[in-house]
Measured scan of single mutants.
Amino acid sequence: MDSLLMNRRKFLYQFKNVRWAKGRRETYLCYVVKRRDSATSFSLDFGYLRNKNGCHVELLFLRYISDWDLDPGRCYRVTWFTSWSPCYDCARHVADFLRGNPNLSLRIFTARLYFCEDRKAEPEGLRRLHRAGVQIAIMTFKDYFYCWNTFVENHERTFKAWEGLHENSVRLSRQLRRILLPLYEVDDLRDAFRTLGL
């Protein structure tokens, strides 16, 4: 685990949702873990991680939370803000982990979509996460503002959007929607068949 708060310049560089993210070879993951008790929730931990020694950050987080003694009788909500969406292998590990821990839910807000040039399996990884109940969305100004005030050593500076933040968020949201769209259509068809008694 690194220091509790991320350096301001590092956050702006790593999380910037630019179309061509040249040189950004690491994934950063800011997280919040909450325990839900009926209508209220309690923050248990927050911080950030990054890839280390060739190990992807998603797997580092799974190792980290596996060391906790999570009460199977309580519900936990984990929220990630990531600089890149998970690769196919990490998505598979996360989905398997969630299946083994049904009392834990995960939301992922990502700055950019990761696509490995040689495999093109990453969209299927995102669909697999979605099927496992993970809520996946692209970061918007509101999410960047929250991260800036929660995870960044900002020295009381106000978060300022860079040129193109909104447009890139919209573009990436549409792309993510197209990736997940087949799932929505299949769910709609299943509901229609059930309604018709087929």
Rank of each mutant, 00 (worst) to 15 (best):
E117S: 12
A121W: 09
E122H: 12
E122A: 11
R119Y: 09
F115P: 01
F115S: 04
R119S: 11
A121C: 04
Y114Q: 00
P123N: 10
R119V: 05
K120F: 15
A121D: 10
L113N: 00
D118P: 15
R119C: 09
P123C: 13
D118K: 01
C116K: 06
D118M: 04
E117R: 03
F115A: 03
E117L: 08
A121K: 14
A121T: 06
R119D: 13
P123Q: 13
P123S: 07
D118T: 03
L113R: 13
Y114E: 00
F115E: 05
C116R: 07
Y114A: 07
C116I: 11
E117Q: 11
E122L: 03
Y114P: 15
R119H: 13
L113A: 03
K120V: 05
D118G: 03
R119Q: 12
E117G: 10
R119W: 11
F115K: 14
P123H: 12
K120I: 02
F115H: 15
L113T: 03
L113M: 01
L113D: 00
L113Q: 08
R119K: 11
C116L: 09
R119F: 05
E122M: 00
K120Q: 11
D118S: 04
D118F: 02
F115R: 10
F115T: 02
C116F: 14
C116Q: 04
A121S: 09
E117H: 10
Y114V: 00
Y114W: 06
Y114M: 00
E117F: 05
A121P: 13
E117I: 10
E122R: 03
R119G: 13
L113S: 12
L113Y: 02
K120E: 08
Y114L: 01
P123V: 04
P123G: 04
A121L: 10
P123D: 05
K120R: 14
R119N: 13
L113E: 01
P123F: 07
A121N: 13
E117T: 13
F115V: 07
D118Q: 02
P123E: 05
A121Y: 00
C116T: 06
K120H: 13
Y114D: 15
P123M: 04
C116S: 02
F115Y: 15
P123W: 05
L113H: 01
L113V: 09
P123R: 14
D118W: 03
D118R: 14
